[in-house]
Design a protein around this nucleic acid. Structure first.
Lengths: 158, 158
DNA sequence: ATGGCTGCAAACCGTTTGCAACTAT
DNA sequence: ATAGTTGCAAACGGTTTGCAGCCAT
């Protein structure tokens, strides 16, 4: 209908962010552009620190506070999602068309995304049964890779 | 078989804790007793702060560090579980015979526990399909009470 | 007596905030 | 010109840790 149907990666964030900012009199700054660019072209679930590192490849002077503030903005604009995988550090990922939950390896930190329709439906039903209106849910399965090689064997804390 | 079958509340923690400590040459101290007592007779999902308050009704001199350390001990002993409901503060609850997940009201902070067999089974299947051995999972549904009165209307931040 | 435990205070660490200078509009 | 934005550093809040003295064993 409206051009290319990309594989849920390209979520056309630029116009969305622009209008979000415009609507409330906020500005499109150089830093916001650099941060959003870095964020949306990063695969995975970066922490602020990881994103900051990437941002500084482009602009060495960006401060962490600005990255935090911009991430909050992206979350508010519905373009990013924040998750917690139990290590006390927030992680962020682009909001893609398809919602998913996470499976985290306790050993190597590898994060696998999954989606299960039945679980989603049951969650809604359960909430409804308790007279709650679901806003958001977070489901993290902590587990251990049973494969021969944890792909990120020493990624966590070298 | 072994005496009374209690409604999953009484989990017979005293002997379990005692043997856990004994096995590794740790000691049963006055503070540990007071803290465990307070913890297991508390309903709900107390934070360290809440537990400390209760503990100090009995012993004014207990320090927070001791409460943190004892809670860690209880978790290690498999007698307590730690959860995070998105407010940056850890909450603890006794490990009861029946596992359950949580439904949290964004408005009033009320926490409802639920259990769904199908979800549990699906989680295991999903993990297995990705060659992960489930260790633990945490599922939190953030929602809003739709009932006329949020029972704890102003409990969060007065 | 000995080695674990405690309370205190300081350290930690991720995140937020105040502020003066800066910049998009 | 004006109000939003930035980087810095300080503040924050929950949690952990070092240490000297204490206490269960």
């Amino acid at each position: 209908m409206s051009g290319l149907d990309s594989p849920s990666e390209t979520l056309d964030w630029e116009p969305k962010l622009a209008s979000y900012l415009a609507e409330r009199g906020l500005r499109i700054t150089r830093q916001r552009k650099v941060i959003a660019d870095a964020f949306f072209e990063t695969a995975g679930h970066p922490t602020m620190e990881e994103l900051l590192a990437k941002v500084r490849e482009t602009d060495k002077n960006v401060g962490q506070a600005t990255v935090y503030r911009t991430l909050r903005l992206l979350v508010e604009a519905g373009l990013a999602e924040q998750s917690n995988f139990g290590d006390g550090t927030a992680r962020y990922e682009p909001v893609s068309s398809d919602h998913h939950d996470h499976l985290v390896c306790r050993d190597c930190g590898r994060i696998v995304e999954f989606y299960n329709d039945t679980i989603e439906r049951l969650q809604d039903e359960i909430a409804k049964a308790h007279s709650f209106a679901v806003e958001h849910h977070e489901m993290v399965i902590y587990a251990r890779c049973t494969q021969t090689a944890c792909p990120h064997k020493a990624a966590a804390k070298s």
